[in-house]
Design a protein around this nucleic acid. Sequence first.
DNA 1: TAAAATTTGTGCGTATGTATT
DNA 2: AAATACATACGCACAAATTTT
Lengths: 139, 139
Amino acid sequence: MTSPLDPNADRPLFKQLADRVREQIRTGELPPGHKLPSLHRLADMYGVGVATVEDALAQLRGEGLIETRKGVGSFVLEEAERRLVTVEGPAFVEARMPTPDEQRELGLPAQGVPVLVVEEDGQEKVLPANRTRLEIPPR
Amino acid sequence: MTSPLDPNADRPLFKQLADRVREQIRTGELPPGHKLPSLHRLADMYGVGVATVEDALAQLRGEGLIETRKGVGSFVLEEAERRLVTVEGPAFVEARMPTPDEQRELGLPAQGVPVLVVEEDGQEKVLPANRTRLEIPPR
DNA sequence: TAAAATTTGTGCGTATGTATT
DNA sequence: AAATACATACGCACAAATTTT
């Protein structure tokens, strides 16, 4: 059963709730594509306000674990197909969060997915991290 | 001067406000290390509620642009010193958001900084993206 | 030392709007 | 048209951390 959250704990309620759901995703209890209960439902289940549930889900969106569709609900994100990108070198690689423009251009979920920045041949490539795996071949 | 936000625009107020501040950071009008006005002050300046300012700053934290210290204020993030990590290959590189555990272990700001995951020699290294630059040497 | 003021964090409620079913 | 569900915006109260007096 779901043990209740602890209002007197050091950790705030919305983080406790995020921890619960994150753990259920990690263990596969909530598999990719699964729809979470509604905000109102979760609020009832855990005995907190709707705003608190919103905060918890915002946290998980920020970690790239779920996606929320307005008027529909929140879903555990499917593992995206990763394109293998070969980096021969010499090159430099960094990672950072995308700008809002890049989010649109790369078709990223609203939040929570970083980009890979590859500098090679004097030019810069910005790649969506959820659909990219860099391959560094043997020397 | 700061032109007011538009409550009737398609874009929500907190995103409009985030856009303003992001632009000021980008242009250098708000340089690294600079302290932002307080929530209450920003709310007055832009004619919105404090909660709306909170949402806007949460957005910017999620983008890794600012850091907020409780009881003190929000600051434009300094550019961190980057350690050059050489990846000889063969190897694979991915990027993702850190778990809360990794955030603590790597000393990352509360939100908004991804990690680089390097698979090399059959083992996995998790590196803080704000302090790491991968170097792929010439073949 | 102590107290007060400032500032952010958390939690909840309410109202309204928008998207989907 | 109606019900459901999420998004936005604001206000209030209290807690916690820090800074100033």
